[in-house]
């Protein structure tokens, strides 16, 4: 019973975090979008700069009708958003939020995250196929092609960090980067770890289907891609999963390259509570960067997308892992 309760609490905390974070980031995304375009964005709901608008949006989505297309595969259609959200939520289990809290301290943490986030592909393909809509299916197929090809540079760049750290446990990776800014992995073996980070960041953008790699849901071409037919809470689940994934990949880049929950000032401002602060701050910074990139860059064409993955990121990450591996070996 005690075990069960502990597990329940440990699993509810990331969920609560995702929900709160999603509401905040929805607002931030719209506000950044409008201010980049010299507009104002939400200004009314809730008083101060429309802070309550995402809450109102969520309430609206919750109360909306569930529409299931007649010719869709009903079981898969209902299951798809659940799988997409569950797989990104499950990955939060291995994220060390602070030195004392990690829902599941796995020895194969990184590997687990790569494995479980691959489930997103199945969910997206399921959604696209069961909708019985050409735009949904095209979006799903594009998405799957994209995620599968970008999984290679992602895995390779994560592997480079694993070579340096010598462990798959995310908590241990964090602990290794203790002691200030210059112990972070991004400053190790210059400039190769920085290149690794660039590869990981680019590939992770593609993994979460964000601009410039948002061809799966390219509004101007495919209506909304794989979630065209979804309404209400099912649609919201896809959105929630997208934002959860954004923080997930940002959190992983924070852990792997930027010291996770470590303070940049060594012992100053460090401790379990500060750990949460630093980790969330670093994660949110990369989420912010992703949002900024969305409003900066145009969408890539499908062939350009494949070019970037197979001809640029993958070979460079291969060379990179060789050099870093040799350097680590010879030191």
């Amino acid at each position: 019973m005690q075990d069960f309760l502990n597990m329940l609490i440990a699993s509810v905390i990331p969920l609560l975090f995702i929900l709160v974070y999603a509401v905040v980031i929805l607002w931030v995304e719209i506000k950044v979008a409008s201010h980049v375009q010299d507009r104002l964005g939400y200004m009314y709901t809730g008083g101060f700069h429309g802070w309550a608008q995402p809450i109102a949006d969520l309430l609206k989505l919750l109360t909306k009708e569930h529409i299931t297309p007649v010719n869709s595969d009903k079981v898969l259609f209902t299951l798809a958003p659940v799988i997409v959200f569950a797989s990104s939520y499950a990955a939060y289990a291995a994220l060390p939020f602070t030195s004392t809290f990690v829902a599941a301290n796995l020895n194969v943490g990184v590997f687990y995250i790569i494995a479980i986030t691959s489930f997103v592909v199945i969910g997206i393909l399921m959604a696209g196929w069961s909708s019985n809509n050409k735009y949904s299916m095209l979006g799903a197929m594009r998405s799957v092609a994209q995620i599968v090809s970008y999984e290679v540079p992602t895995a390779l760049s994560i592997l480079t960090v694993i070579v340096v750290a010598g462990t798959l446990n995310l908590q241990e990776i964090c602990q290794m980067q203790k002691g200030g800014l210059f112990n972070w992995f991004i400053f190790k073996y210059p400039p190769f770890m920085f290149i690794t980070f660039l590869i990981y960041f680019t590939a992770s953008l593609a993994e979460v289907n964000r601009t410039p790699f948002d061809i799966p849901e390219a509004e101007s071409e495919l209506v909304a891609g794989y979630h065209t037919e979804y309404t209400g809470m099912k649609f919201a689940m896809f959105y929630l999963a997208e934002y959860a994934n954004m923080f997930l990949v940002s959190g992983i880049s924070a852990i792997l390259f930027f010291g996770g929950w470590n303070s940049p000032f060594g012992d100053f401002m460090s401790g379990p509570a500060w750990g949460v602060f630093w980790f969330v701050l670093k994660g949110l910074f990369f989420v912010f960067l992703q949002i900024m990139l969305r409003w900066t860059l145009p969408r890539l064409r499908v062939d350009q997308l494949m070019y970037v993955s197979w001809k640029v990121l993958t070979p460079i990450s291969f060379v990179n892992i060789l050099i870093v591996g040799l350097w680590a070996l010879l030191k």
Partner: peptide
């Protein structure tokens, strides 16, 4: 784009 974040809205 970052510069435009702080430009007064038109």
């Amino acid at each position: 784009t970052f510069k435009h974040l702080f430009v007064r809205a038109v």
